[in-house]
Design a protein around this nucleic acid. Structure first.
Length: 293
DNA sequence: CACCAGGATGTTT
DNA sequence: AAACATCATGGT
């Protein structure tokens, strides 16, 4: 058991960070969260400013949860209207996790047009079918499968994972990635727009999935993914429902309105989506200037 | 039982 | 460019 003591000016909320739907392989067991990152089975709990964990070194934990990022500074920079202000205060301590790139990519290809419990179940099954058993006590725990395992191993078992129409997308993208070992380094070095174009070549990767991968795996914090919830929030609280709001309009608005850390704003809005969309009070809309491009 | 979900793709206007 | 149908599955 190892511990990290968070600095006073470094807010962190483990529960929100692991439960808000950015990662899909963590389960809470009492006070303890258990999950797999890379080849490590990790258990971790938070008591106030103390993080206690097994299965990983402090540096690994710190990088995974991005504890070195200046969260107060980031939140201050995106705190530009009453809606995001309320979300920030309700979700204080939520951090964006630095995910392994392939796991993030594959997960969000699978995640399209499904709800979070269903996504978690499918990913769990995918790990059972194609992952490798990890050393540990008790029940068998599997790593997230490598791309070449999914691409070249028992394609019949894919049906067990109940991916539906996403299965061929995952198989094709896994094949592409398995044959392109340098893809992660290459994309990492590209700026947001260019990296996005690269990802969009992959099957099952559209704008939203690409933006999620850029935000959650490649550290592009200006990325502003727009799913149905974010679109709903923008329509009801920011942009109104005038034109059928296209993806590009919403995403560009997010980056223009919230700035270089728009991705954090997106994640706080998503985390607070239930509260934001509950009161359908008209007149609660944020007055914003919309540059029409 | 309806309706929806961290959408992408291919086709038609 | 924008609207549309379609896709498979499970949650609520």
């Amino acid at each position: 058991m190892v511990s990290i003591t968070l600095r006073k000016n470094q807010p962190f909320n483990l529960d929100l960070t692991l439960s808000c739907g950015q990662v899909f392989r963590w389960e809470k067991d009492g006070r303890i969260w258990r999950g797999v990152v890379g080849d490590s089975c990790i258990s971790i709990q938070q008591r106030g400013r103390v993080l206690s964990f097994r299965g990983a070194k402090p540096e690994f934990i710190s990088r995974y949860f991005q504890l070195d990022e200046d969260l107060p500074g980031i939140l201050d920079s995106i705190d530009r209207d009453p809606v995001i202000h309320a979300a920030i205060s309700r979700c204080m301590g939520l951090r964006i996790i630095r995910q392994p790139a392939w796991e993030c990519l594959a997960s969000y290809v699978i995640a399209t047009y499904a709800n979070i419990p269903g996504i978690k179940r499918r990913i769990s099954k995918l790990c059972q079918c194609y992952g490798e058993p990890l050393p540990g006590p008790g029940i068998e725990i599997f790593s997230f499968p490598r791309a070449h395992s999914i691409a070249y191993q028992d394609p019949c078992r894919i049906s067990e994972c109940r991916l539906g129409y996403r299965a061929p997308y995952l198989l094709e993208t896994a094949t592409m990635i398995a044959g392109d070992p340098d893809w992660e380094e290459r994309i990492l070095e590209l700026p947001y727009e260019d990296a996005r174009k690269e990802l969009l070549h992959l099957k099952g990767v559209g704008k939203k999935v690409a933006d999620c991968v850029l935000l959650f795996a490649f550290g592009k914090k200006e990325s502003f993914p727009v799913d149905v919830w974010i679109q709903r929030i923008l329509e009801t609280r920011y942009l109104g429902t005038k034109p059928p709001s296209a993806y590009d309009r919403c995403s560009r608005f997010g980056r223009d309105h919230f700035g270089e850390y728009a991705g954090y704003a997106q994640e706080y809005l998503f985390c607070d989506r239930a509260a934001i969309t509950k009161n359908e009070m008209i007149g609660n809309q944020v007055p914003v200037s919309q540059p029409d491009r």
